[in-house]
Measured scan of single mutants.
Amino acid sequence: MGFKLLSKLLVYLTASIMAIASPLAFSVDSSGEYPTVSEIPVGEVRLYQIADGVWSHIATQSFDGAVYPSNGLIVRDGDELLLIDTAWGAKNTAALLAEIEKQIGLPVTRAVSTHFHDDRVGGVDVLRAAGVATYASPSTRRLAEVEGNEIPTHSLEGLSSSGDAVRFGPVELFYPGAAHSTDNLIVYVPSASVLYGGCAIYELSRTSAGNVADADLAEWPTSIERIQQHYPEAQFVIPGHGLPGGLDLLKHTTNVVKAHTNRSVVE
């Protein structure tokens, strides 16, 4: 069995187990497998329904001669939608809004960016022009300005110390501490036991640490421990890039980060 097929099978099995364990909360999309990078042309966006009122959005972007996937989250909030992270750029984010209108038909009224990198804030200006209120932590807003990236308009308070959590509509926002970046936030959907790890969490097929220019490698494993301790009931975990899975993604990420750190020390 090929690795790609095995990865998709694991996603399907995880979703099936969740649907059985929580039949009222989960209505997993039966329309197909989780979209992969090879299936999404740059400039297009796919939506994948995880649970009743919960979707991931998947886009792709060219970077350094390669094409990478990027995940975000959409959560229903009454007759409105909360968006977590842009679709990595203005063109993708405009396509995301169009796809949401086509498939869901509810307005996106608020959006949260989970850290300051372009795959999370690139497209904020498109959201703002569409009347979406954009939010991020003060740290993310400051770092985005320093980096020359787009800056969300509103500040999220109460997320300055490791372990801080605040309720934001249908989700809980959690600051686990520094990891992929010093400002990275985690998003949890309690009604569906869905954990969105953003770039602080890796997919299972990833074996290298990737972009760690703004990471705190020493603190990252401790931050992941905080996530595990705060959300032990999480059933569906979405990484910032690639295929979702279960809580095993947290341990896998820790292993990859520690291996990278150990290699760096040896070198």
Rank of each mutant, 00 (worst) to 15 (best):
A95M: 15
V257C: 13
I58H: 07
H154G: 10
W88S: 12
A192R: 11
E267R: 10
G242P: 01
L10R: 08
C199P: 01
E39H: 13
G148R: 10
E80S: 10
S70H: 10
S155E: 05
E172F: 02
T60C: 09
L127C: 14
H117A: 00
A21L: 10
R76M: 13
Q229L: 10
W220V: 10
E80P: 02
F168R: 02
A178Q: 12
A111H: 07
R263V: 07
G169Q: 07
A178S: 04
V28T: 14
S27E: 08
S27Y: 03
P239H: 01
Y196M: 06
R206Y: 12
Q61T: 06
E267S: 12
T140G: 09
S137F: 15
E99R: 15
I40A: 05
Y202N: 02
Q229G: 06
K102N: 14
V126H: 06
R206E: 07
L173V: 14
T93Q: 14
G198T: 02
A90N: 12
L185T: 05
Y34C: 10
I84A: 11
V124N: 06
L97I: 02
G131S: 11
S161I: 07
G197R: 00
P35C: 14
D119R: 01
K91L: 07
D119V: 01
P176Q: 01
S208V: 07
G169C: 02
E44N: 15
R206I: 09
T153S: 03
E219A: 12
V132F: 02
R128K: 11
V121K: 15
A209T: 05
T86I: 05
V166F: 09
G210H: 14
I17S: 03
A179L: 03
T182R: 07
I104T: 05
V212M: 14
G65P: 11
A51H: 03
I227P: 01
V108W: 00
T134D: 11
R167W: 04
V189P: 00
E33D: 07
H241Y: 02
S155G: 11
H115P: 00
I186T: 13
A95C: 05
I227H: 01
H230M: 11
S191Y: 15
Q228A: 13
G43M: 10
P41M: 13
Y135W: 05
I201W: 00
H241G: 01
T253I: 01
S22K: 10
A178P: 09
E233M: 05
G240L: 01
T207N: 15
Y196R: 00
S137R: 06
G169V: 03
A15L: 08
S193T: 06
L96P: 01
L73I: 03
K91A: 11
I224E: 11
Y188P: 00
G240I: 02
N255T: 04
D183L: 00
A133Y: 09
A213Q: 06
S70D: 10
H241S: 01
E33G: 08
H260D: 05
T134Q: 03
V28S: 07
G242M: 02
I186L: 10
